[in-house]
Amino acid sequence: MKTSNLGNYFEDFEVGSVIEHALSKTIFESDNNFFSLLTMNHHPVHTNIDYAANQQHGQILVVGTLVFSLVVGMTVPDISGKAIANLEYESVKHLAPVFINDTIYARTKVLDKRESRSKSDRGIVYVETIGYNQRGEDVLSFRRKVLIQKSNQND
């Protein structure tokens, strides 16, 4: 049986490279409603059309943490598929509103990498990910550090 090729090893990452992630997702009303319920975010700007119509954007806004969760998920096949752990998320920025039926895409830039100081079989990769919509507008950005195994280890 062939093992999965999910993710990249520490050595595969090159500082300065940009990865356009293949996964994308159109956010449907049901996605936003389920996520609002699951996370107990009952703010009416996310769930009440009449309320949202009278607010700044005039329509339902997608929950920001749903957008964040989707974009992180889109990066897994390329960034954290071989991760031992996500060590840190930082500088999460909501750059523009996301609405029902927007399609979200993502790209990641490798900012830095270094070998682990305590274990020789792994290293830390520092990346910045941008989520953007179907119009090419950046809607989310964040940075994270991921602890990733080296290729000389068994999966």
Score class of each variant (00 low, 15 high):
K93C: 09
L87E: 07
R117E: 15
G123S: 04
L6N: 08
K145M: 13
E137C: 06
I60N: 06
V125Q: 00
Y9Q: 01
G123Y: 00
I84F: 00
G16I: 03
P44S: 00
M40L: 11
R117G: 10
T3S: 13
Q55I: 02
F35T: 04
L66W: 08
Q134K: 11
L140E: 02
K150P: 05
E128C: 11
A106C: 12
E11S: 04
G7E: 10
N5T: 08
N32A: 01
E29K: 15
G7R: 06
G81S: 10
H43M: 12
E14D: 10
V67H: 01
V15Q: 10
R144L: 10
I19A: 07
R144T: 07
D112T: 09
D12I: 05
A22Y: 10
D78F: 01
S141N: 11
L140T: 02
D102S: 07
F10A: 02
N8R: 14
T75G: 04
E128Y: 14
N41Y: 09
L147E: 05
P97D: 12
S24I: 08
N32R: 00
Q55W: 02
V71Q: 00
S116W: 03
V92S: 13
F10Y: 15
D78K: 02
V146A: 02
V110K: 05
Q153L: 09
L87F: 11
Y126Q: 08
F10P: 03
K150N: 03
L61R: 07
H46G: 01
V127G: 09
P44H: 04
K109P: 00
N33A: 09
V63E: 13
D121R: 04
Y51F: 14
A83M: 08
S4V: 07
L23P: 01
Y105N: 08
N8H: 10
R144A: 09
K119I: 14
T65K: 04
L61P: 07
V45S: 06
A52T: 00
Q149F: 04
K25Y: 10
G7I: 06
K82C: 05
S120Q: 13
T47N: 12
G58W: 08
S30H: 10
L6E: 13
I148F: 04
K119Y: 13
Q56S: 03
F13P: 02
V67A: 03
V71A: 00
R114K: 14
G123E: 02
V127E: 02
F99K: 11
F28T: 13
I124Q: 03
L140C: 05
F68P: 00
K2N: 12
N33Q: 12
H57C: 04
A52Q: 00
Y9F: 14
V45K: 09
A53H: 10
K150L: 07
P97I: 15
V67C: 02
P44A: 02
G73Y: 04
N33R: 11
